[in-house]
């Protein structure tokens, strides 16, 4: 339990670690979605062009 409370500093230490990992994971997740959306947009446009020809 000591490792969690950290002499009353637990709240500061754990929130710092939690926030850091949350922001990094969120940033990565958003960039994946962004990448896939751009890829799909190009794919749709190119496939539509192919079919017309």
């Amino acid at each position: 339990m000591d490792a969690m409370t950290m002499g009353n500093y637990g709240v500061y230490v754990w929130s710092s670690f939690g926030l850091t990992f949350a922001v990094i994971i969120l940033s990565d997740w958003r960039s994946r979605i962004h990448h896939n959306r751009i890829y799909r947009d190009i794919e749709v446009r190119i496939k539509a062009l192919e079919e017309r020809q």
Binding site: A3, M6, G7, Y9, G10, Y12, V13, S16, F17, T20
Partner: peptide
């Protein structure tokens, strides 16, 4: 950093924020 490193002589466990900061 959270569990193995010793506490700091002045700051106690609060210094562990250094590992992300």
């Amino acid at each position: 950093g959270l569990f193995l490193a010793p506490e700091d002589y002045q700051q106690g466990d609060a210094y562990r924020i250094i590992y992300v900061h």
